[in-house]
């Protein structure tokens, strides 16, 4: 079956206020941003007969702005917009790097950060950077607004804590102080572009003057139903020098926080091996 355009009830609000009001009246409407996820399933005929809330005309939600404490990225900012933004490239290069590996140019020109999050695929490439940067998601509805820590937004495959009538308005990322000694991003897929991740990793490391770890943050995507921080390994390396024994043990501990999945793209065993190699690469600074 194909998408049948005559069966759609289309809502196209022009202002954010209107959008939230219309969504409150039609809580079962499906939001539409850049369409790079939605339209794929639409083309397969999976959304016929639905009410669609097209939020792409909400211009103010495309802005990226830097304030004193951090950067605020509008939900409708595209992956291409993020890559072009000087403050993001400078301060949050893991995120802009991730955006540059999402699909290919035509996908990056349309796909949005808000859509990537709301779609909640286990393979969302922007998630590990947002997890280690400890981003916060601003969600709004006609009644209320709330700030959701990034590690609380997902509840399962394709599932978020967003309620009917609620939209992602923006993502806030606090500046890192002091700047990390080491930043790491790596996506492993079947080919350079347009491939969903088998595993995707982001890491931040702060070393003190004597070479001990003052803080480590490491997140893996595509490994489980949702993005995971390696809490056990992060805790273990704290205050230690990164000797080969410490690194070995941290890599062992990885399995405490992620239980990889077998799926169409890869086996669990492969994912575990590769993600340990990534953590090792990051910790040994190669």
């Amino acid at each position: 079956m194909r998408g049948a355009p005559d069966t759609i009830i289309l809502l196209r609000p022009r202002s954010t206020r209107q959008a939230l009001e219309v969504f409150a009246q039609n809580p079962h409407a499906v939001p539409l941003a850049g369409g790079t996820d939605f339209m794929v399933s639409w083309n397969m005929g999976l959304h016929n007969g639905k009410t669609v809330l097209d939020i792409s005309a909400l211009r103010s939600w495309r802005k990226i702005s830097a304030a004193k404490t951090g950067v605020r990225i509008g939900a409708l900012a595209t992956h291409a917009d993020l890559q072009r933004h000087p403050a993001l490239r400078r301060e949050f290069s893991l995120l802009t790097e991730a955006c540059s590996e999402i699909g290919a140019a035509a996908i990056q020109n349309r796909g949005t950060l808000g859509g990537n999050i709301a779609n909640a695929s286990p393979a969302g490439d922007s998630f590990p950077p947002q997890a280690v940067y400890e981003a916060k998601v601003h969600a709004v509805s006609a009644q209320a607004r709330r700030l959701i820590p990034f590690n609380e937004i997902f509840v399962g495959v394709k599932k978020t804590v967003l309620r009917p009538g609620e939209l992602i308005e923006s993502v806030e990322i606090p500046f890192l102080k002091p700047r990390p000694s080491r930043q790491y991003f790596r996506k492993v897929g079947t080919r350079a572009a347009q491939a969903l991740s088998k595993t995707v990793a982001a890491g931040l490391l702060w070393l003190s003057r004597d070479g001990r770890v003052s803080e480590m943050r490491f997140a893996l995507g595509s490994m489980a139903t949702m993005v995971r921080r390696l809490k056990s390994a992060e805790h273990f390396v704290q205050g230690k020098k990164l000797t080969s024994e410490v690194i070995d043990h941290a890599c062992e501990l990885l399995a405490k926080d992620v239980s990889p999945i077998d799926d169409v793209r890869s086996t669990a065993q492969y994912r575990l091996k590769v993600s340990r190699n990534l953590l090792r690469e990051f910790l040994s600074g190669r």
Partner: peptide, 24 residues
């Protein structure tokens, strides 16, 4: 959205026209 055979330019940027409802 995988193959790019449908690519056109919107405001000068390459996009896949199979993933865009015309209302946008």
């Amino acid at each position: 959205g995988e193959c790019g055979a449908c690519a056109v330019l919107v405001e000068g940027q390459a996009v896949n026209s199979c993933l865009i409802p015309v209302c946008q």
